[in-house]
């Protein structure tokens, strides 16, 4: 059996074209070095790999295992039921409603945050007095606690003594039952979620806008292109890496939105997106740990699929400057 030696560089740095047979090769030295490299690699990577395996992959695998059990939380025993939890989720009206709410919530909040964030970024990109303070103010909601934001907005939306109801009464309108009506509850949490997160989109877009090549924009301007034309034909296409990045991050965040939904609508009527439904099934009174785990797995698969699709297909349409 012959082996092909690893090509080595010459003194001049060129790699010999010809491969050499290794009869009495320097294999032991190479092998020792490889082993040493491997040991260094393991020494550096093993702690992290161990932590990731313990705290990410182990719970993930455990969750998949639990999703195939009929297990009441708190019970010390469970029955293996295969894919029945998944079957129930995809065939029950409650499961499909949760899926529908997830899709609506994600599309509206991602679209709303990105669109309004872009408009806000355009406004914040102008040279107006106090723009630095405005930028900080726009970003502030993003770093606030979701619980605190939810509680404050609940006061605002309160149909009896909320600020919103007060203004509606001033123009002769009565306040909708924001919390009690499932449709209005979904609108309410989407509005608050967009408000909280649009600052993030705005700041990221602002960074993108400020890194656009000014010579291209100036050339277009000299050629007679107006601001709107410059935006649509130059700025927006050149912002596509930013848009792509935001699309992935905001979509992943929206699919995992929980705190606002839990605080503003504790029963989940009309707002039980997948992650909230998973919580409600396990901890919201039902104690169905197995079914809850199955919902989490469905969400996990959705996240993976969306991410892969975005990276493989959407990214192809991104213009990198």
């Amino acid at each position: 059996m012959s082996r092909t030696a690893t090509p080595e560089k010459t003194a001049g740095g060129a790699t010999p074209e010809k491969t050499v047979e290794s009869k009495h090769p320097r294999r032991p030295r190479t092998s020792r070095r490889s082993r040493r490299d491997a040991l260094v690699f393991l020494a550096l990577a093993l702690p992290n790999i161990t932590l990731i395996a313990l705290f990410t992959y182990r719970p993930l695998l455990t969750n998949i295992y639990y999703s195939m059990l009929d297990w009441t939380l708190g019970s010390t025993s469970a029955a293996f039921i295969g894919l029945d939890n998944y079957k129930e989720f995809f065939t029950s009206s409650a499961g499909l409603t949760s899926l529908r709410i997830t899709i609506i919530f994600t599309l509206v909040t991602v679209g709303g945050s990105m669109l309004l964030g872009l408009l806000l970024a355009l406004a914040l990109n102008s040279k107006i007095p106090g723009v630095t303070i405005a930028r900080s103010a726009a970003f502030a909601p993003y770093v606030l606690s979701g619980v605190g934001v939810g509680l404050v907005w609940l006061f605002i939306f309160d149909p009896s003594f909320g600020v919103l109801a007060y203004f509606l009464r001033m123009i002769g309108l009565s306040s909708p039952q924001w919390v009690l009506d499932p449709d209005m509850a979904l609108i309410m949490v989407m509005v608050v979620y967009i408000w909280k997160n649009l600052g993030y989109c705005a700041i990221v877009y602002l960074g993108g806008l400020q890194s656009l090549p000014t010579d291209v924009l100036q050339a277009a301007s000299l050629d007679g292109a107006g601001p709107v034309r410059r935006f649509w034909t130059i700025s927006l296409p050149l912002l596509s890496p930013t848009t792509f990045f935001l699309l992935i991050t905001t979509m992943l965040n929206s699919l995992q939105a929980f705190d606002l939904l839990r605080i503003m609508t504790p029963t989940g009527r009309g707002t039980n997106a997948l992650i909230f439904e998973s919580y409600l099934q396990a901890f919201g009174g039902y104690s169905r740990a197995g079914y809850s785990a199955a919902i989490s797995v469905v969400l996990f698969v959705m996240l993976i699929v969306i991410t892969v699709v975005q990276i493989r297909y959407v990214e192809k349409k991104v213009h990198y400057a």
């Binding site: 297990w71 025993s77 293996f80």
Partner: peptide, 18 residues
């Protein structure tokens, strides 16, 4: 190993209803 790791802990499967 991963499957075994995933299965350890949690409820006992196939036992009585507890």
């Amino acid at each position: 190993g991963a499957a075994a790791l995933a299965a350890c802990g949690g409820p006992s499967v196939g036992g009585d209803d507890g």
